[in-house]
Design a protein around this nucleic acid. Sequence first.
DNA 1: AGTGCGGCCTGTCCGC
DNA 2: TGCGGACAGGCCGCAC
Length: 272
Amino acid sequence: MPELPEVETTRRGIEPHITGQRIAAVETRNHQLRWPIPSNLDQQLARQVIRSVTRRGKYLLLGTDKGSAMIHLGMTGTLRIIDATEPPGAHDHIDIVFDNGMALRYRDPRKFGAVLWAGENPYEHKLLSHLGPEPLSEQFDTAYIHARSRQRTQAIKQFLMDSKTVVGVGNIYASESLYRAGINPKLAAGKVSKPRFEKLVQAIKEVLAHAIECGGTTLKDFNHTDGTEGYFSIELNVYDRADEPCKQCETPIKQFVQGGRSTYFCPNCQKR
DNA sequence: AGTGCGGCCTGTCCGC
DNA sequence: TGCGGACAGGCCGCAC
């Protein structure tokens, strides 16, 4: 389940290998991801040189002189740099093959991800145009989120996970950062005070920055771009710890479903 | 406009 | 042991 740190780690992992490389062909074995892989993707990308590898939220952008390809890893997507002759496995849906004999291989068992053509102005693409600020940018600060949350009745956890509020805060980091800030996940976003938002913003930035620094995390589905197992580097205080003692007060961690997603919190440390 | 929820998909886990 | 069903989750797109 790549969260933002995993996506950023992937970006950093593939960038030096593909920047400046010319694309020979795009080989698609299975078009049915979250959205169909565009049938003209090979046409768009063939003979183009990768000029940049950037990230917006959890979307990766491969920039060429003609425009950008956009990749989302969904839940179980991975990108690896391989020798193009390596035989594909069952869930290896697409290869971007380079003139130098290497390929960028996209694997995604659950097919929640996407590989799309985003054109010349990718930020104007429908999937990117509405996105909120990057969590590690200056635009994401206490004043911004406080102002944006006023009058909102939505639970703070769902508000945080809404990509219009801020990008890149997934289910794990939403629970973890609310725990760090001592905020009850059910509390209406509009009722969170400015000082408490200050703690929350700080918690989000710290947790994400630390995870990126440690090279991404994760539980099971993340592999580093070279194919070796990734492993967790941030300490999980509440996520996936239902009924286990809170690390601060030993109260059993509670789990409940919020908007169809599991939320974990300490009923004592996050009373309100 | 804000909010809530269905649905996509398959590997893993649990109970019978 | 083998099998079936529940569950996990990012996030769009729709319905209210």
